[in-house]
């Protein structure tokens, strides 16, 4: 290498990389749209902050919904009650997974001897997807303990959970089924051509791919379930919504409800972001 070449190389490395015309244009556009977005957001926030307090009832609302003193007094107990929500959620999820998968497979059977199973699968999903969750919670949560079962089998924690599990299994079963149907026939053909039985084909070839494919959709179901646990407050369990209701009556103040809402958001917002991330990743993988 000659001296001349050496200095040329050093000069090339030192010079800042020249931006293309396209890059310069894109930077300009980005800068402008960021400015517009910042200004318009600032205007909207300003409008809310100045206009809302001008409403005639603002002072009363502020005292009954955004009372710092009540918030500080009740929030720790609310968080404690939320542990019940988490517990109910935690033992519902495995049950839902197992039942939903069984229902999805039952709806997929082609064996005539298993037709009753298939019929059951169809009826099950039709019924439990067709009734509002709160109604199922009422019917099961009040109805079954009404049979006069001995303790602890009359607990609203048990039957409330059952109501949620039955309802959500119907939805999740449909998600699993759509996943199973989304696996291309050529995969089954390849498995069959190797002499694999129908059940082995399902177990080793179709299901592993199908379940992976519907993870984002099921994440959204989990987020919905996490919120619907609060419906059980109507039949007895002292979870976060019920606890907030108790405080409301006690203190004649609605701030505990705002506290409960914040607790739910602190869980659901990260969970939705994670689900979005999974969906985006899957789209990237498939393209």
């Amino acid at each position: 290498m000659t001296l001349q070449e050496k200095t040329d190389g050093a000069a090339a490395a030192a010079a800042p990389p020249r931006r293309t015309r396209r890059q310069a244009y894109e930077t300009r556009v980005r800068r402008r749209s960021n400015t517009v977005a910042a200004v318009s957001t600032a205007l909207v926030v300003l409008a809310i902050v100045t206009l809302v307090p001008m409403a005639p009832g603002w002072e009363a609302v502020k005292k009954s919904f955004f009372n710092a003193e009540v918030f500080a007094q009740t929030f720790p107990r609310l968080v404690q009650a939320f542990l019940w929500d988490i517990a109910i959620f935690a033992w519902s999820v495995p049950l839902i997974t197992v039942i939903a998968l069984a229902i999805a497979l039952a709806r997929d059977t082609r064996n005539p001897a298993l037709f009753p199973l298939r019929l059951f699968g169809i009826l099950y999903t039709d019924i439990f997807r067709g009734i509002p969750v709160i109604l199922v919670v009422y019917l099961i949560g009040f109805g079954i303990p009404g049979l006069g079962l001995p303790r602890p089998w009359n607990s609203p924690y048990i039957w409330g959970t059952v109501a949620l599990v039955l309802t959500y299994s119907a939805y999740v079963a449909e998600i699993f089924r759509s996943g199973i149907e989304s696996i291309h026939d050529s995969q089954r053909a390849a498995a069959s051509s190797l002499g694999l039985s129908q059940s082995d084909t399902m177990r080793f070839v179709v299901l592993p791919q199908a379940i992976r494919r519907v993870v984002p959709a099921n994440m959204n179901m989990l987020i919905a379930l996490q919120k619907d646990v609060a419906l059980l407050s109507f039949i007895g369990p002292v979870e976060v919504l019920r606890q907030a209701g108790v405080f409301k009556s006690l203190l004649a103040n609605f701030t505990p409800y705002v506290g409960a809402a914040l607790i739910f958001l602190s869980v659901t917002i990260p969970a939705t972001r994670y689900a979005d991330y999974l969906i985006a990743r899957q789209r990237r993988e498939r393209s």
Partner: peptide
């Protein structure tokens, strides 16, 4: 199934199991 075990088949689109 027993017949297919005696006959091997290869497809245009490979059809490997992606997982």
């Amino acid at each position: 199934d027993p017949v297919r075990r005696r006959i091997g088949m290869v497809f245009q689109s490979y059809n490997l199991f992606p997982h």
